[in-house]
Simulated scan of single mutants.
Amino acid sequence: MRFHTRKWVKPEDLNPNGTLFGGRLLAWIDEEAALYAVVQLENAHVVTKYIAEIDFKSSAKTGDIIEIGIEVVKFGTASLTLRCEVRNMMTREAIITLEKIVMVNLDAKGNVKPHGKTEIEYIKNRLK
């Protein structure tokens, strides 16, 4: 799994318990999954269709740095299924693992559109 993004946990990211607010983390994950899908599918019109069961294993507090990792599980006809892992770099603990996030490729009118992709493409290979 490649860890593409790091986030610094700030006071505004906390819940009343003083730990990372789950909704904030899920927003970061959703954004990371969308960005990953947009780059892979080469289309800015991508939406989240499904996120699997959410089970928090640990948390983070102010000053902690978390990493968000994404990997492709499957290319569908018009979808991309991803797996996500988030870990706390300070404590070395896994915060959450999402086994299935499904992103769907759309056309400019919001209709499902086949993407024609079958494997991961790296940006460096597109820039040749």
Rank of each mutant, 00 (worst) to 15 (best):
F56A: 01
A37G: 07
I123H: 07
V39R: 15
K57V: 13
K7M: 12
P11H: 04
S58V: 05
I29G: 00
R92I: 08
A33T: 05
H4M: 10
T97A: 08
D64E: 04
T77P: 02
V9E: 02
E99H: 12
V104F: 11
W28L: 03
G110K: 09
I66P: 02
N43A: 11
D30R: 04
Y36E: 06
A78H: 06
T81S: 11
V47L: 15
V112K: 12
Y122S: 12
V86M: 05
N111Y: 10
W8S: 11
K49Q: 15
M103W: 07
H45G: 10
V47T: 14
V72N: 06
W28A: 02
N105F: 01
L14R: 02
P16I: 10
K57F: 09
T118G: 13
V72E: 12
A33R: 00
M1H: 09
I68E: 02
V72P: 00
D107G: 08
K113W: 08
P114G: 09
V38R: 09
A44I: 15
E31K: 06
V39D: 10
S79Q: 05
L20I: 00
K113S: 14
G69S: 04
T5A: 13
T77G: 11
C84Y: 01
K100Y: 06
K128C: 12
I120M: 13
Y122N: 11
G23K: 03
V39H: 15
N15Y: 00
I65M: 14
L106N: 03
T5I: 15
Q40K: 07
E119M: 10
I54T: 14
N105W: 04
F56T: 03
V112Y: 08
T62K: 09
A60K: 00
Y50I: 10
L26N: 01
A34K: 02
S79L: 07
H4F: 11
F3D: 03
G116L: 06
E53A: 12
G76R: 08
E99T: 11
I65F: 15
K117N: 09
E12R: 14
I51K: 03
F75R: 07
A78I: 07
E67W: 08
K57E: 12
T91W: 03
E12P: 06
I95P: 01
K109W: 08
K124S: 13
V9D: 00
W8V: 15
G76F: 02
C84V: 13
K109C: 08
V72K: 03
R83C: 12
R126I: 12
L26C: 04
I68G: 01
G63F: 14
T5K: 14
G22I: 01
Y50P: 08
E119H: 15
E67I: 09
N111I: 08
I123L: 15
T48H: 05
K113R: 14
E12W: 06
G22L: 00
T118L: 10
E99F: 05
M89T: 13
I29T: 00
L35A: 05
I123Q: 07
N111A: 15
D64Y: 00
K128E: 13
F3C: 07
G110L: 08
T19G: 02
N111M: 12
L82W: 03
M1G: 12
L25G: 00
V9S: 01
E67F: 11
K57D: 06
E93Y: 03
L35K: 10
I123K: 10
E32P: 01
V104E: 05
P11E: 07
T62H: 08
N15W: 01
F3T: 07
